[in-house]
Design a protein around this nucleic acid. Structure first.
Lengths: 217, 217
DNA sequence: ATGAAGCACCGTGTTTTCACCGTTTTATTA
DNA sequence: TAATAAAACGGTGAAAACACGGTGCTTCAT
């Protein structure tokens, strides 16, 4: 029997998932959590040790990236299968770098699910087209992903906050007021981010912020 | 027994939903569809007549707005319960205007689901805080919603195209080149959209375009 | 202790964006 | 065909955004 944990903030989806997975021969859902933090707590307080964790990316408190890293270092025998709506290269590569063994979209058909779980249990990995394409692409364009994937983690708290304000209609001067910083500093933030993220305009920054979940619209 | 139809392009969510609803006393899922168009076809070809339709908004082919309108005029005794991730005012008001009897978020707890279904079966409506707040607000700011909801359909082809370019890093002059129009015309497009959409900056336009699916990022 | 790295800050100048005014052209239809 | 709406185009000036080249002040590892 393979034990499965579900980590996703959508309770409804979780309920459906649990029902489905429990209906699969040889699989049993033994834990559910709303986010990474709750998952970590449950791991620590209970003695439950899941074989496979079905993990969402966008969650409050502790997101999928962090959670997957944590699992990689604290539960090395536990395998992560990402279950996300995000289809963009950065998210997929980043999760794989953080130890994920497979990546499937939330609107997949049940059969895909079964296949993925079987494959991860038996071979340790589930390599679908989504993943293999990104991997192939990654091999040839590593720099791009490095820039992009690292970008997020290389951003300071202030830069993240700044990116949130970027997605409003405030001027840089007004943003400076909001953040209690000099307008010049804000200019520097912008210029640095232009370089870091390889964009040239405020719209570029806004798109980046949205794409990477720094702001939700 | 109350018959329920599920219209949502996320098969997994549908599976979970179906399992959950079938577990509720007195409810039975009698039809599932991937989108509005498929739903309409099934209604026409089969003799199934659902009492309640659980309807998503963002779907390919025929979205929730259209589908709800169609149900309103073709199946007047069928009641629509919206099930969406969208929490923004425009979406909620627009669905209610198109005949929806209730609106719940996809990450609601199962109990909310049961309550909503019971309420719609018994009283015809499910008025939660989400809906009542928007309704109250709507009473007092009707113009705003009219502007917003109508905005999308009031946009010309060129304006839509322009909004796509807005979400790039091109300057207005470059956009003018791309669209084979004078820079002045582009200025006018921008100014008109500022008024129509009630925004003040290019970032505002970009956010609107993304929010309303004119561009996908 | 020193040199590299990062953050906050500043000045100047150019380009782009935005606001407000108006004219010509095209299409529609009464 | 004259009236009318709309789309395309234009000028000007102020405000905002962007580019570039800096200064101090920490921090922190060598």
């Amino acid at each position: 029997m393979t034990f499965v944990a579900l980590v996703d903030d959508h309770e409804l989806l979780r309920t459906g998932l649990a029902a489905m997975i429990n209906s699969f021969e040889g699989f049993k859902v033994v834990m559910e959590a709303n986010n990474g933090q709750q998952f970590v707590e449950k791991i620590k307080t209970t003695k439950i040790n899941p074989d496979i964790v079905l993990l969402d990316i966008t969650m409050p408190q502790m997101d999928g990236y962090e959670t997957s890293s944590w699992i990689k270092s604290n539960l090395p025998q536990t395998r992560v299968l990402v279950l996300s709506m995000l289809e963009n290269d950065t998210a997929i590569i980043r999760m794989l770098k953080n130890g994920a063994r497979g990546y499937i979209l939330k609107d997949s058909k049940p059969k895909i699910f079964k296949d993925a779980l079987d494959s991860i249990r038996d071979s340790g990995y589930y390599i679908n087209d989504l993943v293999s394409n990104k991997l192939m692409h990654y091999i040839n364009h590593e720099e791009v992903y490095d820039n992009d994937a690292m970008a997020l983690s290389n951003l300071s708290e202030n830069e993240i906050t700044f990116l949130k304000w970027i997605c409003t209609e405030k001027t840089y001067k007004e943003i400076a007021d909001e953040m209690c910083l000099s307008p010049r500093t804000i200019d520097t933030y912008r210029d640095n981010l232009f370089k870091k993220l390889d964009v040239k305009t405020r719209v570029g920054l806004a798109i980046f912020a949205i794409k990477n979940g720094i702001v939700t619209i």
